[in-house]
Amino acid sequence: MKKTFRFSFSLILIICSISMEAQEADTVRARPSISAGIEATGPAMYFLDDSKYNFEGHLSYRLNYKYFLVIEPGYSKYNFEKYNFNYNSRGFFMRLGTDIGLLEPVATKIDHFAGIGLRYGISVFNQEAAGIISENYWGEHTSSVPSNRVHAHFLELQGGVKAEVFNNFLIGWAIKLRTLIYSSGKDEMKPAYIPGMGNTNSFIIPAVSYYFIYRFPLGAASDVSASSPEK
């Protein structure tokens, strides 16, 4: 949980710094932009624990000061070893959805983001399990689940921040909660790990992502909402 608290602390610092910078309500127009980035915790965690590898990208299109369309494609590989089975899963995933900014459209905040995100995710992957050992009155029995292709669908709710640290270069992170809505794998094919979603241990699956993003501004600024910015 140390990592969670460290992330929490940095989140609060970023939000506070954004809040303190912008005291004036100098409403501005948000320029449409495309952003491209990578998620960093997957490769970083791989160096600490090579049983799980997750690489994903982040692409977003800014519609206006509040709404963003987001695509997050990725690849994930997972190996889980227990005393009585060895599970492997690997495959591709894509999350599609929107980010909704909750910052006011003022000059000091327009290039940052703090808000929530909603995603629909689809994952197509192969999984297999070997060395499944069961032991009872009749002795020890070893079996396996051969490689099989599964597709799964899930939803994600996230809250996060992205702060522009250099010109058009943003660093940010998000806390994510995911839930499975459908998996084609049943019974022994029921997946233990779904690429792009995570372990299927519980109804709610948490995740934390850290992003490095570059923004490509496009054209002229879009209209800001007709309503007054929140103060």
């Binding site: 949980m1 969670t4 929490s8 989140l11 939000i15 809040s19 909750l102 910052l103 006011e104 703090a114 808000g115 929530i116 709710l157 996230q158 809250g159 806390i175 909660l177 241990n201 519980s202 709610i204 699956i205 948490p206 934390v208 929140e230």
Partner: peptide
């Protein structure tokens, strides 16, 4: 903006609860 604090706090609490190792 006022929404972001309770939303992120709620997500952090759920994250903490969900991270408990399961037996």
């Amino acid at each position: 903006m006022k929404l972001i604090y309770p939303l992120l706090t709620g997500l952090l609490v759920l994250l903490h609860l969900s991270c408990t190792e399961q037996a």
